[in-house]
Write a protein that binds this DNA or RNA. Structure first.
Lengths: 184, 184
DNA sequence: GTCTATATTAAGATAGAC
DNA sequence: GTCTATCTTAATATAGAC
C-alpha cells in the first residue's frame, strides 16, 4: 500500500480523534494493514505517523491555500477562493482542524513548534495579500489574526452545535471583513 | 479528600489533555489519591469523572458568566465584566476551553449533547442581553455566535502561537463589537 | 475513605516467516 | 511489504484489608 493512500486515512483519523485518541490498532483497522506493516512504513511509530500526516497536510495547504493567496488577481478574489478551499478542507465545518486538535494533550508538548510555524505561515500569507492591497502592515497583521480566529472559532462552534450554519456564515462574511476599507 | 478539592484538579487535567489524553493513573498522580479511592468517589470511572467535572465547570459558569450577563446595568458593562471573567477562566488565553477539547475523540460521541447544551445556553444569554438592548433577535443571535467564535478562535490561536496577545486583543475588542450600533 | 494487590484488556512496539 | 505471533508497558477497573 503506497503512502498516497495511507496518508489521507491517517489525516482523517488524527483530525477527528486527536493524537491521544488515535491508537495504532485503530490505524491498523482503518487502513486494513497489520501493525507490523505500519511500523515498516513508519519506524518511529505513532509520532512519525503524525509527522508524516503533518507534512501531507502542509503540502495540501501549500498547493491549495498558499498558492491561491500568492496568485495574481484582486485581493477580494483571492480571499474568496481561499474560503472555498477552506470550506472544502473542513467539509463546511463538519471536520475539525488538525492543528487545533494538536494544541492539547501529549501532542501539544511534542508538536507545538510545527503547529506554531504553520499558523505563522498562514498569518503571513494573509497579511501579505492585505499589505499588497495597501493596508499598513500592523493592520494587515491584525486582520490576518482575526481571519484565523474567525476560522478556528467557527470550526469549534459548528462542531459543538453540530451545525454547519455558523461555519458557512462565517466563511461568507470573511472576505468582506478582510477587505473592508482597503481602498477607502 | 473532599470533592471540592478534587474537581479543580480534574478540571485542569481534562482541559489541558482532553478526555483521551487523561488516564486514571495521571489523575491518581495529580490528586495523590490511589486509583481505588478515585473509583470510590466515581464508580462510573473516567466517564463519571468527566461528568462531574462538567457539572463543576457548569456551576462556575453559571455563577460567574451567566450571573453577570443576567445582572442589572448597561449591556456594555455586563459584557465588559463577562470578558474579565473569561480572561480569568482561560488565564488570558493560556488555558484551553474544556468544551472545545471535548469536540474531538471519544468524548465527542459520548458528551456531545452536554457540550451542545452548554454552548446554546451561553449563546442565549448573550443574545438575551443584546435583545434587551434593542437589537432584533435574529441579529442578536448572530452577534452572540460571533462572540463565541471570537472567544474560541482566540483561544486556539493564542495557544497555537504560544502568546496571550491575540486572546487579550480579542477580549479587549469584544465588548464594542457586541454593542456596535445598538443605539444607532 | 484510602490503601495494596491484582485482574483484564488494550496500547506501543518488535521478531521473524513469507 | 505484509503477515502472525509475541513482548512489554500502561490502561481501566475491582477485591478486600485497614
Amino acid at each position: 500500500m503506497p503512502k498516497e493512500t495511507l496518508l489521507p486515512i491517517l489525516f482523517h483519523l488524527f483530525r477527528q480523534h486527536g493524537y491521544d485518541g488515535v491508537s495504532v490498532s485503530k490505524i491498523s483497522a482503518a487502513t486494513k494493514l497489520g501493525k507490523a506493516s505500519l511500523y515498516h512504513h513508519f519506524p518511529g511509530g505513532k509520532a512519525e505517523m503524525l509527522t508524516a500526516t503533518l507534512s501531507y497536510s502542509q503540502q495540501w495547504f501549500e498547493e491549495n491555500i498558499l498558492q491561491v493567496l500568492a496568485s495574481e488577481g484582486a485581493a477580494l478574489d483571492r480571499f474568496q477562493q481561499m474560503c472555498d478551499r477552506l470550506s472544502e478542507l473542513y467539509s463546511a465545518g463538519e471536520q475539525p482542524c488538525l492543528l487545533a486538535t494538536l494544541t492539547v494533550g501529549q501532542a501539544h508538548s511534542v508538536f507545538h513548534e510545527s503547529v506554531k510555524r504553520r499558523l505563522e505561515g498562514f498569518l503571513a500569507a494573509i497579511a501579505h495579500v492585505l499589505s499588497e492591497a495597501g493596508l499598513p502592515s500592523a493592520l494587515a497583521q491584525q486582520r490576518a489574526e482575526d481571519a484565523i480566529i474567525a476560522l478556528q472559532g467557527a470550526l469549534i462552534l459548528s462542531r459543538g452545535l453540530d451545525s454547519s450554519a455558523p461555519f458557512i456564515r462565517e466563511m461568507a462574511q470573511l472576505t468582506e471583513k478582510l477587505c473592508e476599507k482597503i481602498s477607502g
